[in-house]
Design a protein around this nucleic acid. Structure first.
Lengths: 138, 138
DNA sequence: CCTCATACTTAGCCAGACTAACTTAGTTGA
DNA sequence: TCAACTAAGTTAGTCTGGCTAAGTATGAGG
């Protein structure tokens, strides 16, 4: 196989499209939307600022405000403040939020693991080798 | 490295999240939205029925109706009919639509190729080996 | 202080997803 | 044959999630 970045890019383009449609099918009709889940995931390690969340999710601040409003109304996150800077709002998981997040994560990983179990060891090895490379993109 | 589908699933979950955010950043502020582009892509090989398009894109028929309405207003696709079954509407690219599709495809592939060119040959080989496996998922 | 920058929120818009209900066209069986 | 059912799309109404513009409150600097 030749090492041709252009040809590889063309193949990747096709596969990415496939993955996007696959993900869309997977998350359709879930109780927690994928965006809500993604935001909860960002809070797993502890409280974050609104600006951090917006940047990480590649959205504008107002968009994140609305998302956090909804999650707060649902009781999954709580807003706090920064004692050192009264302009800053922090957001953290509630107990319920953490429970919900872990449940969704478990379900997703189980689903993926089920798919991966149908592959050959060689195929899984190929995926494992490619993951760090994909993580470098961007 | 152990061959553990569960651990691999967990890593994939992280990488998929990264790719989703990456794609979102890439397509933000494009003239043709990613959904419109995706639909145009489905028409590249020839006319398709509404139901086919909806199923392929994992959306309900009314959603596809609205998308096709907009693409039709923009002059990028044209509706047709099936002589054998008057209930069926077909959709196909106009010349303008094909031109636009090819331009967007070229731009995306060029962007990807640019990213891939920054990788080492080994990394590109790892990606190339994994693509067929990713394409099998779902 | 007065001004400017920063961190959010609010308000109003648009795209894109859904369900429910409607129209039109085939299909089927008594 | 025609009444009832099924299938393909569209329309209408609602929700999520994105954006920009504008407003509020706080911090920082001259």
């Amino acid at each position: 196989m030749r090492d041709d970045p252009d040809a590889l890019a063309e193949q990747m383009s096709v596969v990415l499209r496939h993955l996007v449609l696959l993900l869309r099918r997977t998350v359709a009709g879930q109780p927690v939307t994928s965006q809500q889940y993604a935001v909860l995931g960002s809070l797993k390690q502890g409280p974050r600022r609104m600006t951090e969340l917006a940047e990480e999710h590649a959205v504008q601040l107002p968009t994140m405000t609305v998302q956090i409003n909804r999650l707060e109304e649902a009781g999954l996150v709580a807003r706090g403040g920064d004692p050192a800077d009264a302009r800053v709002r922090t957001v953290e998981l509630t107990g319920e939020g953490r429970t919900r997040l872990l449940a969704v994560q478990r379900a997703r990983i189980a689903h993926l693991a089920h798919e991966l179990a149908a592959l050959t060891p060689d195929e899984r090895a190929a995926l494992a080798a490619a993951l760090p490379v994909l993580a470098k993109l961007g």
